[in-house]
Amino acid sequence: MIMVKIEVFGTGCMKCKRLMKNVEKAVKELGIDAEIVKVDDIVEIMDRGVMLTPALAVDGEMKISGRVADVKELKEILGG
């Protein structure tokens, strides 16, 4: 199985924590092999071009910025 790399960008605020929690639940429910990385370094977030947090990238591609996606949407992103 190919491992998916999921990055959650945020500086530790509540919405970033909620997105991380939803990502973990979506990955668990899908049963996929995923590496979940929390990116909380402001310089790295800026370097990646993220202007609104929380944000989410899958295999390097930015999928969500500035909001918390719910589990259903995350499953669609990760499963599709």
């Binding site: 605020c13 509540m14 970033c16 800026m46 609104l52 500035g66």
Partner: peptide, 19 residues
């Protein structure tokens, strides 16, 4: 200077990409 990313915490408006 490079623009800093903006955290959307506390912002519930659609303008922030939220609902």
């Amino acid at each position: 200077s490079q623009a800093k990313p903006e955290c959307t915490c506390g912002d519930t408006t659609a303008a922030a990409g939220g609902k």
